[in-house]
């Protein structure tokens, strides 16, 4: 019961942080809110038994993402201009989509239900066969590197490509800046 109450409390905090991030106009504060949001998500993952994921989220979401966003804000300016458009149309779209999705959840298996279809198929096989086949206690590692090695290779290729893309866009060498518009025209 304790876990459920902590769960409810954390999710409520997540919602508050996300809504605060929407309302703020100072991008520095928005980036900080996103850092808090990631940290709360990481705590949430520990609660939901996903320690590996929590580890990653704590290092990536709170550390690297926030530093990246601050770096960008340092380059492009800190304040968002007030929107001139009406927010009525986006709000309608969002509420309609959200209502549809909530309608969709009504058929979903309840949270933590051990008889849910997701717990019936491949996962039990991984858990029971992993010790004999790979000899590794951490099932997440054995699935990541062995059972789903192709998947991980593909993901690594995406990370590689993104890194190359950033290099192509920004470059690592110091720019010689002749004037303000040193960007190619």
């Amino acid at each position: 019961m304790l876990i459920e109450s902590v769960n409810i409390f954390l999710l409520a905090l997540l919602a508050v942080t996300a809504i605060a991030a929407v309302r703020l106009r100072d991008l520095f504060a928005v980036a900080m809110m996103f850092g808090i949001y990631s940290l709360l998500a990481a705590v949430m993952f520990v609660l939901l038994d996903a320690v590996d994921v929590a580890f990653t989220e704590a290092a990536v979401g709170v550390g690297i993402s926030t530093v990246l966003m601050l770096g960008t804000i340092g380059l492009v300016g800190r304040y968002e201009r007030g929107s001139v458009r009406s927010s009525l149309l986006p709000l309608t779209v969002v509420v309609a989509t959200g209502a549809t999705l909530i309608y969709g959840t009504l058929d979903m298996p309840h949270f933590g239900d051990p008889t849910a279809p997701v717990h019936q198929h491949v996962a039990p096989a991984y858990i029971t066969e992993s010790p004999q086949q790979t000899g590794i206690p951490n099932v997440v590692t054995s699935i990541l590197a062995s059972y789903r090695g192709y998947d991980t290779l593909g993901e690594l290729a995406v990370i590689f490509t993104a890194g190359v893309g950033v290099l192509a866009l920004l470059g690592l060498r110091r720019r010689k800046r002749p004037g303000k518009e040193g960007v190619g025209q």
Partner: peptide, 19 residues
């Protein structure tokens, strides 16, 4: 044990996401 498969998917997705 909780289902490890979503953990694997999301673990990689987080790092891909930041890239």
């Amino acid at each position: 044990y909780s289902n490890p498969l979503p953990h694997v998917l999301i673990l990689t997705a987080i790092v891909v996401g930041v890239s």
